[in-house]
Every structure is written in C-alpha cells, then in structure tokens.
Design a protein around this nucleic acid. Structure first.
Lengths: 114, 114
DNA sequence: CCGATATTTCTATAATTATCGAAATATAGA
DNA sequence: TCTATATTTCGATAATTATAGAAATATCGG
C-alpha cells in the first residue's frame, strides 16, 4: 500500500460520520448495510451520507452492491488490513504500538455491539 | 481513546507532509528531530512545517522540547498505540485486519502481498 | 547589547471538504 | 404506465485546512 492510498484511507476515516459508518459496516460484516439504514442510524441526511459513503468507496475502504432498490455497502477488510499494515510498519517503529495494545486480539468484548 | 481523539489523530496523519514527518520522527526515536531538520528534509517551508507539526502536536501524536535554539519533536508511541488499539477493536472486526498482516510484527517482509 | 540562527505566529489567500435541499436516476409493484 | 421507494448527483454555500512570506519571539556566541 503506497503513501497516497494510505493518506486517502486515513482522510476517509478522519470524519465523524464516516468513522461511525465504517464501524457500523465492520460490525455488519459481509451482509453489509443499506445506505438509507446507515443514514437513518446516524441521523444524517441521505444526500450527506451518500457523499461520505462515496469518500469511503474512493478510499477503497468499502464496496457496494445493488440489491433491489437498496445499495448495500460492505466494509473491505483487506483494505483496512493494508492500512493497519502500513501504519504498523511505518508509524510504529516496528513493534511498540501493536505490542502495546496486546497482539492477541480475540479475547476482548469488541463484538458485543452487533 | 475516544472517537474525537481518534478522528483528530487520523486527520493529523492524513496529509502528505504530516505523514512523512511522523514517519521520520518514528525512525528518529527518542532523540527526535529538530523542526528545521524535518522541514529541510521534506522540502517544506519552515512556517508550513511549523503549522503541520502543531497539528500533530494538537492530535497528541508528537511532543516537543526545546534544546538550545532548536525545538525537537518526538513521536509519541503511546498515542500511536492508542490509535492502533482503537482501530483494531472498532474497525477491524476484532481479528481480521491485524491477523491478516501477521501479528508477530518483528519480521519485516509480511507486507509484500496486498 | 548585537548579530546570527531557529522557530513560531500573523496575515492573507487558495484549495479542499462538508452540508443538505432539490432534481435526477434506478427499481419495484399494482 | 404510474406511483412509491431508495439512492445518487447537482448546485449553492459554509466551514475547514493548507500555503507561504513577513514579522515577532527565543536563544546563543561574542
């Protein structure tokens, strides 16, 4: 992942509604979530949410598929993984940051809010 | 680390010169680097670099200390670790992203494949 | 104190990003 | 086809962020 892509991804996540939307999509998993459902859940007008979802898409962090009248957005785990990898290697002195948060992630309660 | 802090940190890194500066500081370690050295290295005017370093500071990603006439900036690993922790827990479905990049970070070449 | 160096703050301007209503597009069902 | 639903695109505006020269501040050596 090159620096430009990383910057786009960081910029995409560096906004209240987009970070919230992406978290929602990560929780939703492969089923994803309809644009309207995200907008309603976050209390953001549809056209604004559409703008933000497009930004996430342009950054490669989400993909979309049409399903009847809805457009379903899905988090792209590989892209997020790429971002994490870049940050780990280039912004964390190799070990410090990740080791610090505990590398075996599976034991937390981070999935309870599904 | 709360969402607002995370957004500030992401926004701080989501800019060419700031990401480059932060990478430089991570490499420099505890010795840090003088503002002028960073500016020169990146080919950015001093006043512009000062603006960007202030943004990184405001986001808590760097600290500074005066050393004679220079102001030395130092990367804050704990802050970066906090950011990584938040992303891992909230934006990575718990495991996928980090596991994907190889959790034992100490070896360098795990990132060649997307 | 003075002159040189290092950096920040000030100021103005340019560029980018966010907001959201209204209009346009796509789909579905009667 | 007509109408309702879901979402995007358009367009206008507001807000934020970036750029960089000039002036101000701090420190040092003499």
């Amino acid at each position: 992942m090159d620096a430009e892509t990383v910057i786009r991804a960081l910029g995409a996540l560096a906004q209240e509604h987009r970070l919230a939307a992406f978290r929602l999509l990560v929780q939703a998993g492969a089923d994803g979530m309809a644009a309207g459902a995200i907008a309603e859940r976050l209390g953001v007008p549809a056209s604004s949410m559409s703008f933000h979802l497009a930004q996430l898409g342009h950054a490669g962090l989400v993909s979309q598929r049409r399903e009847s009248r809805s457009i379903i957005y899905v988090a792209d785990y590989a892209a997020m993984g790429g971002l994490m990898g870049y940050l780990t290697e280039n912004c964390c002195a190799g070990v410090a940051c990740v080791a610090d948060t505990g590398c075996s992630v599976s034991d937390n309660e981070e999935r309870t809010a599904a």
